[in-house]
């Protein structure tokens, strides 16, 4: 399998990328980790006439907390995220997510930014970012804007990014005390997309009531899904196992999976429930341990 003919330019700054994107429009594709784009080009499912390689832009691979926000540069590799002590200690949900994406070799190139910008509901970070209420920062010819994650995923492979915009950063609120998150994925084998996966982020008050709940689901609809009803059911409640089961059931009901080789739709919905329940339990444990 051979990619189609393409032009290539390695850019050195975000501005340079944005200028090129403005000139080339939809003919161009941003080459980040390339771990989805290049295989699609080999199958000629993607035939961009221009690749804008952003990998040489300096300073786009930061993982740091700034002003109450965790900032992830668009070029942070999944393997870097996986190995980050900051992430491991403070954002275990992100660590959970990074270590189940594709396989370890793919993760050495795949980027967090690319995982979101691809707009693939089968990718893992979208669910996590939905659960964490992240903001996606994009730079275009008119400057920078911040897109709430809820507005980011528009359709299958379609995001709120304009053709002349570059995703530069992901911002995640620093977790408050008594918070915990988890991502739980069920896949047929390493390297597979999820049959179903759930990202959960919970915040408890001092009494143990749930004050904030985020639930994102992977590969269960035409776009990454937030289980709004399930979140709502948790709010203000004491976290009993019964409550978690109820929320997991609501999350499963929110899904709209398609039947395919991973299983029939009703099976995926059932696994969605199991994954949500397990992610809820783990997130709760972590929140309770984080008191």
């Amino acid at each position: 399998m051979i990619p189609g003919p393409v032009r290539y330019r390695r850019v050195r700054s975000v501005d340079e990328a944005v200028v090129l994107l403005s000139q080339l429009g939809t003919d161009a594709k941003v080459l980040s980790g390339g771990q989805s784009l290049i295989p699609m080009m080999k199958f000629r499912l993607a035939e961009p006439s221009y690749l804008i390689d952003i990998n040489a832009i300096p300073g786009l691979d930061f993982i740091e907390e700034r002003g109450g926000v965790l900032c992830l540069g668009a070029l942070v590799r999944e393997s870097t995220l996986e190995r980050s002590m900051l992430v491991r200690q403070r954002y275990p949900i992100l660590h959970d997510t990074a270590e189940v994406i594709a396989d370890p070799l793919v993760r050495n190139l795949a980027t967090v930014g690319g995982n979101l910008a691809h707009g693939d509901p089968a990718n893992d970070h979208p669910a996590t970012m939905l659960a964490l209420r992240a903001q996606v920062v994009a730079r275009g010819p008119n400057g920078e804007r911040s897109i709430p994650i809820d507005d980011f995923f528009v359709d299958t492979f379609v995001t709120a990014l304009q053709p002349d915009e570059l995703l530069t950063e992901i911002r995640i609120p620093v977790p408050p005390p008594r918070s915990g998150g988890a991502y739980v994925k069920f896949e047929r084998k390493v390297g597979d997309y999820a049959i179903a996966a759930a990202g959960v982020f919970l915040v408890l008050d001092e009494a143990g009531r749930i004050t904030q709940a985020g639930i994102g689901l992977t590969n269960l609809s035409y776009k990454p899904l937030r289980a709004v009803d399930a979140e709502r059911a948790l709010l203000g409640q004491y976290a009993s196992d019964e409550l978690l089961r109820y929320a997991a059931e609501l999350a499963a009901q929110a899904t709209d999976p398609v039947s395919d080789l991973r299983g029939p739709a009703d099976y995926k919905r059932a696994v969605a429930r199991t994954m949500t329940l397990r992610a809820l339990r783990r997130a709760l444990e972590r929140a309770q341990a984080n008191a």
Binding site: D103, R188, G191, D192, L261
Partner: peptide
């Protein structure tokens, strides 16, 4: 894991290693 599957038109659905599942060291 492994099975070659066709749809109702006879198109093979398991024509890559993404869907024809060879076990890794983890499985």
């Amino acid at each position: 894991l492994e099975e070659i599957v066709y749809d109702e038109n006879g198109t093979m659905l398991t024509g890559t290693f993404m869907d024809y599942l060879l076990p890794t060291a983890v499985e």
